[in-house]
Simulated assay, not measured.
Amino acid sequence: MTVQLIEITEDVADRMQILTTPTTCQVEDARMIIVDLLGSAPSWPLAVLVDQVCMAYECPDGERLMVDLRDREGLADDLLRDEPALKRVRWVRATRMALRELTDAGEVVWSQPSDDPDEVDHPEVQVLMSGAEPRAFHVYVGEPLPDGSVSLR
Rank of each mutant, 00 (worst) to 15 (best):
R100D: 11
M32R: 11
R70H: 15
P117I: 12
T20V: 02
E119D: 12
T103S: 15
G39A: 10
A76L: 11
L80I: 03
R90E: 03
L69Y: 02
V108Y: 07
D118H: 13
V108E: 02
G39W: 04
T21G: 02
V92P: 01
C25I: 09
W44Y: 15
D36T: 09
A30G: 07
M32Y: 08
A98S: 10
E63H: 14
D29H: 13
G106S: 13
M32I: 10
D116G: 05
M16F: 06
R93H: 02
M32H: 05
D36C: 07
S114E: 11
K87C: 07
W91T: 02
V109R: 07
I34A: 08
A56P: 00
E101C: 05
R90S: 12
Q17R: 12
A30V: 07
G39N: 14
I33N: 03
L86E: 00
L75R: 14
R31V: 03
R88G: 07
D29F: 11
E119K: 13
E107T: 04
V35T: 13
L46K: 04
S114C: 10
L38N: 06
L69K: 10
W110T: 03
R64A: 15
E101D: 13
L46R: 12
A30Y: 09
D29Q: 14
V50A: 15
L49Y: 01
I33H: 02
E101A: 01
D116N: 15
V109C: 09
L79N: 10
L102M: 13
V108H: 09
V27S: 00
L37G: 06
L65V: 03
G106M: 08
V89W: 03
E119T: 07
E107F: 03
R31F: 11
E63M: 11
E83N: 06
T20R: 04
L86T: 05
C59G: 01
R70P: 00
G39C: 05
L38F: 05
G39M: 05
S114T: 14
P60C: 05
C54S: 03
D14W: 04
V89T: 12
Q17V: 09
V35S: 00
L99N: 09
G62Y: 08
D51A: 11
I8S: 08
P60A: 13
A13D: 11
L102I: 03
R88I: 00
A105Q: 13
T21K: 09
L80N: 04
G74R: 03
M55W: 10
A85F: 06
V67S: 06
C59H: 06
I18Q: 15
C25N: 13
L38D: 05
R100G: 04
L69I: 12
W110L: 01
T23C: 00
G39L: 11
D68Y: 02
D68Q: 07
V27P: 00
V50F: 11
M16K: 01
V67E: 02
T20S: 14
M55F: 04
R31L: 03
M16G: 08
D78T: 13
